[in-house]
Amino acid sequence: MLEIIDLHAGIADREILKGISLTVRAGEVHAIMGPNGSGKSTLAQVLAGHPAYEVTGGSATYDGEDLLALPPEERAQKGIFLAFQYPVEIPGVTNAYFLRAAYNEIRKSKGLDEIDPMDFADLVEERLRLVDMDREMLQRAVNAGFSGGEKKRNEILQMAVLGPRLAILDETDSGLDIDALRVVAHGVNSLRRPDNATIVVTHYQRLLNYIVPDRVHVLAGGRIVKSGGKDLALELEARGYDWLVEAAPAGVAGAAV
């Protein structure tokens, strides 16, 4: 589904990603872990097409298509969803309106008609339960005045409604208490299907107790320094990141997946 080869990217002349290679297949959950500043969020943003980041080398192919050539809205319409680490507030625009606008844009890109508002209401109603959110949240402005936990939950609600093929969760666990974490994980797990994939970006192993990954990659200094199965996350929990960061030989480009 997603194939990243030797990806280099940065911001304002500073290279952050220094050769990332990663393959994600349909049905898989990948965890990207690593210390602060290792480039995890940058990777998520670059995949989603944030204009502040410049890709300076390498490639990313999504369903056989050059992902990096697509504007962000087309990536979204083709099923890439980024759950933001810091969801953005849009005052005055209700959640309900925003969700429907996004849902319809994606339908339009597929040549489908806009959804009937009543049908959409039913769909949202059902998805609300998945993330244990109250219906009145729909009438509030997008993320405006939401608590940190509410914002994260709202991201998962959007994900549940839009039904992406490839979901990228950027530090969705940060700032969540254990109950909220469970709710979010439950939402993500319920949405897992053989034809979609998830990339979970996280600093802590904690979330991976609930969302069990197929592969775990450790990012340090803009490179993947180690990849492994779900046990790698537990090992990181016990030993921290230092042993990997120190062991990584400088100048290695594109560590093995």
């Binding site: 989603a48 944030h50 990536r75 979204a76 933001f84 953005v88 005055g92 625009v93 994606i106 402005a141």
Partner: peptide, 27 residues
């Protein structure tokens, strides 16, 4: 750019994003 990017990441065009943000502001 963050607000616009957020909307784009949900599939909205830049123009749609701005009109949405601005009409929310003027509601």
């Amino acid at each position: 750019e963050d607000q616009i990017f957020y909307c784009k990441q949900r599939g909205l065009s830049a123009e749609h994003a701005i009109s949405l943000i601005v009409s929310g502001f003027c509601k």
